[in-house]
Every structure is written in C-alpha cells, then in structure tokens.
Design a protein around this nucleic acid. Structure first.
Length: 506
RNA sequence: GACUCGUUAGCUCAGUCGGUAGAGCAUCUCCCUUUUAAGGAGGUGGUCGAUGGUUCGAAUCCAUCACGGGUCACCA
C-alpha cells in the first residue's frame, strides 16, 4: 500500500485534523500578491528605518516551509517559492491562540502555506514577514529529506527530480539557465530570419546520422516506424521546397549506450541556410557563442571543471589530417596506408578492426589521439568522404568532404557541412552505405529514395549544421554529466523483488 | 557489454578482527515570545538492496541477482 510509512500516516492524520478544524489541507483558492523576492526587495527600506517595521503594509506570500522553529508561544519559519526564501514570524498573539496551538502540531516542514502580514526586522537584522494570517495551502504527507545535507543520493535525485528541485536551489538554477539558452538560441536564429519548423519524429527510414534507432509500430497502417535519429533529411526537403533558412530545436533518439555525455533522447538544434557555405556557418557559430555568453553574463574565459575555455573569436581552425599529425602526433607518412595505420594503433595499445576503410581509420585515430586534446573551441575541417555520406565533396580533393566539427572541452559540440546536392552522387553514396550495411555495419545509412528524389528537383547550394543543446548546456552551467542538464534522464525501471523471483522461476 | 565502487532508520552517514544495530537531522511527549542547521529533557523508529552459501554465530566472508555512481567499450 502506498503511504503506509509511519511518518506519512502521521502526516495524513494531521491533514484529517486540519479538515476537522474547517481548514482544507488541499485548497485551490489561494492567491498570492508578492513573491519572496519581491517582498525582500520592496521592503529593503525597513532595515534602515528606526521602527524596524512597517505595520501599514500588508502582503500575502505563499511558499513551502523549509525550516520551522517553535519557541513556546511564537515561531519562525522559512518559506520558499520559485524566486527565493523568506523568513516569517508568527505567534499566539498574531494568529490567535487556538489556531496557534493547533498549527504548532499540524503545520510542519514541507507544507505549503500562505501568510499575510507586514515587514519587520528581527533582532539579528533579518527582514522578515510578521504574519497576521497563516493558512495551509497544501499539506505535504511525505517528509522532506534532512534539511542540512539535503538529498545526496544521485539515483533518488534523478528518479525524483521534483524532490531534487525542492531540496536543491542549484538544480533549479541549472534548468533555468538551460531554458534561457534555448530561448536565446531561438531568438538568435529568428532575428536572422530563420524559420522555425517541426518535422516528423516518427520516420519510415531512420536517416540523417549513423546510429541505431528505436523502433515502434503504427497499428492502423501496420508498419514499423523509427524514432528519428536526426531531422536532417526532412529539413533539407524543406529547403528544396523553397524555405531558404530553417531551424528545428527538438529531440533525437538513439538506441545506444548511456554515459556522461549520452542520453537516449537528447536535444539538438539543426539549421540549414541556402546560398551560404560552411565558412558562413562557422562565423554564425562564433557569433552565437558570443551572444550566448553575453546574454548569460558569462566570461569569455569560461571555467569548466578544472579547465578554462577561451571563447575569443575567431575559434581555432585546423584540417582533419593536420590535426591527426600536429595534435594527435600521428606520423604523417603512415596516413596513406590502411595497414600502417592499423599497425600504429596497435603499437599504441589499442584494439582496432583491420577491415575498416581509410576514412573510418582516420576517425579511429582522431577519437583516440586528438579529440580529448581539443579544449578551446576548435573547428576541425575537411573530413574523410567515407564518414560524411551527406556532405558535399570537395572539388580540389574528391576524397574529402566540405565539412567541419566543433570541439570544446574535448567533446564534439557541433557538426556542419556544405550539403551534398548532387542527386546522382547522393544516390551512389547511399548505395555504398547500403553495401556496408549488408556487410554488417549496422550503423550505416539506409537508402532513402524519396530524399534522393527531392534532391532530383534541385536543392540550392546550402550549408547545414547540428548542435547538441545538452552538451552546450553542460558547458555553460559547468555540469559534468548530461543527467544534470536533462530534467528526467533515462533510468532503468525499478523492479520489485517478487517480480524478480518470478522471472527467475521462468 | 566489461571492470570497479556503492546500497545500513524517512534523510545524511558511522559500524574495528565475524559476536546479534549506532549518531545527527526528521518524527513523538514535554519546556521555551526574536530564532538562523535555534536550544534543553525524554521516547519511538531497522527483513542492514534481494536470494542462496560458509559458520556455533553474518551488516561484516563467498556466490548469484537488482539498482546506482565511476572508468572503459559502444556512440561522428
């Protein structure tokens, strides 16, 4: 039975007692006229005043009791609302003898109360509210965690985020910043005449990235659908249709492992810009970081963990192959031969699949020797064509794609490129991916003929980019785990022990 | 998926060499009309994550399982 815990039962009884006194413990007609923050700002002058109180004022503040100190015939409490925390004082004289005696027993930490009264300053100099009226708004029947240490257990914090939020003001702060980041990015693109769109979440073909999709089923049509791994191919269809600058901020779903930087559902912004190229994207990205840091009042040299990240423009740019040699210290002379690369990786003590093609091996080298060293914002330019099936081929060097990725603090933050708009080339690259898939690469791209058809009508020269909102938020809030910037991160369901026993018997 | 650390009262945590369960906060009963993690006195509260095993005896040792953290693998 739920709520059968002794403490919860006690509190349920208190709720009944309140009701018996004609005080509904779950009222809905509670209004407040002042937030805790407004109260403190508004009556700041009382601190300077001679009387240390202003009995002509009368305000109603509502909040959750976080601290409660009874002292015989008077009491102090701290009540918290979204914007802050305020001390209130009430006594036998101020709220009435009978109600004071009852409230002493029936009103406790965790309850949401409404108090009406005037500002005054205590002996120790704290601006507080002297309550003349105290009413219960919501009776809380589950006791809060310990007031000093709060809620520490990470598992509980993620599973019961609401409790984490009640107990931890920093958590509320982080998610407010996240909201602000999304809002400012939206503004940034709207101001530049990008159109915000929504494309399907359920795809007949999971395209736009190399990743394992979640599968679901549409009953009426009796077909499987894939939760999208990227919105890319739909957004480019819109550019074919005539929208010259579009963006979408929404969730992608990838059926893969979870760790500090991966959650199965995560938020990306993708944007596509016709008649622009990837250099324009890089400028736009630098500008966006500039604006974000300014709007969030963060310094250009931003501390992150034990690092300091320098966001001064322009960001460093370095070619993919150059990065392997200069940053990864991979000898240049081995880079044209698969066998030598495989041998090199093995001498460094890592496993590698010897059947990989040159592009994939470059990627391995990059992940092993370069990525973690890219602390300050760095654009890595000109990717191998084999690992860039949707990007435009360079005219000077057909083995590379006109593509960049942005790395910050050793992590990939963004990926952008000149879009491949040659339908024949796209068809052939899909065909190659299909071969790889049939050969066992389960992350290779699917053939999407409808998309190739769309290109057949003509995709204008376009550059497009995706940027991970969760990782960006981690960076700007100095959080080390993606779980700390996602309100409800993915967790395994809790199984009851008797269920487990049943499973064992099966 | 692998390795590793953790899981003890509602919460935060102790628990020695294997000898039968502890503290603080919360809660309950009292005292207290300016407290600040209020204070003082006294109480209640435990299937030590689960299941097996070793042992005269298991929170403690062993095995399996569950969940979580970290590292790695996977993941542009």
């Amino acid at each position: 039975m739920i709520f059968d815990d002794q403490y919860q039962q006690q509190r349920i009884e208190k709720g009944h007692a309140l009701k018996a006194l004609g005080r509904n413990p779950y009222r809905h007609n509670i209004t407040k006229d002042t937030s805790t923050k407004e109260f403190l700002e508004c009556y700041d002058y009382v601190i300077q005043s001679e009387e240390k109180r202003d009995e002509h004022k009368n305000n109603t503040v509502v909040g959750r009791i976080k601290f409660l100190r009874h002292m015989g015939k008077a009491a102090f409490a701290k009540i918290e609302d979204e914007h802050g925390i305020l001390q209130i004082y009430f006594s036998r004289e101020s709220i009435g003898e009978e109600w004071f005696a009852e409230a002493k027993k029936l009103v406790e930490v965790g309850d949401i109360i409404s108090v009406t009264g005037f500002p005054f300053v205590t002996k120790t100099g704290e601006l507080s509210l002297h309550a003349k009226v105290l009413e219960i708004a919501t009776k809380s029947i589950i006791p809060l965690p310990e007031k000093f240490h709060g809620l520490q257990d990470k598992e509980l914090r993620y599973r019961k985020r609401y409790l984490d939020m009640i107990m931890n003001a920093d958590v509320r702060r982080t998610f407010k910043i996240r909201s602000k980041i999304v809002s400012e990015i939206r503004h940034f693109f709207e101001e530049r005449n990008f159109l915000e769109v929504e494309t399907p979440m359920m795809h007949p073909i999971a395209g736009g990235a190399n990743a394992k999709p979640f599968v679901t089923h549409h009953n009426a049509l009796d077909v499987d659908r894939y939760l999208r791994i990227a919105p890319e191919l739909y957004l480019k269809r819109l550019v074919v249709g005539g929208f010259e600058a579009v963006f979408e901020i929404n969730r992608n779903f990838r059926n893969e492992g979870m760790d500090q930087t991966h959650n199965p559902e995560f938020t990306m912004i993708e944007f596509y810009w016709a008649y622009h190229n990837y250099n324009d994207l890089m400028h736009l990205t630098e500008e966006m970081f500039d604006v974000l840091l300014k709007k969030l009042k963060l310094p250009k040299k931003l501390p992150y963990g034990d690092m300091e990240i320098d966001f001064s423009k322009p960001f460093r740019k370095i070619g993919f192959r150059e990065a392997l040699c200069n940053i990864g210290e991979v000898p240049n002379e081995i880079l044209d031969d698969c066998a030598q690369i495989v041998a090199y990786i093995k001498t460094k003590g890592f496993e590698v699949d010897a059947k990989l093609n040159l592009g994939k091996l470059y990627e391995e080298l990059f992940d092993l020797f370069v990525e973690e060293k890219l602390i300050n914002p760095t654009f890595i330019m000109d990717y191998p064509i084999e690992i860039s099936p949707l990007a435009r081929r360079s005219e000077e060097n057909p083995s590379i794609a006109e593509r960049f990725e942005l790395f910050i603090a050793g992590r990939e933050i963004a990926n952008g490129f000149n879009e491949l708009n040659d339908p024949i080339d796209q068809y052939e690259r899909f065909a190659k991916q299909l071969q790889a898939k049939n050969a066992g690469d389960d992350e290779a791209h699917e053939m999407d003929e409808d998309y190739v058809q769309a290109l057949g009508y003509g995709l204008p020269p376009t550059a497009g980019q995706g940027l991970g909102i969760d990782r960006l938020t981690m960076l700007l809030t100095n959080e080390e785990s993606i779980k700390d910037v996602i309100l409800f991160p993915a967790m395994k369901p809790l199984t009851e022990n008797d269920e487990l026993l049943q499973k064992d018997e099966e």
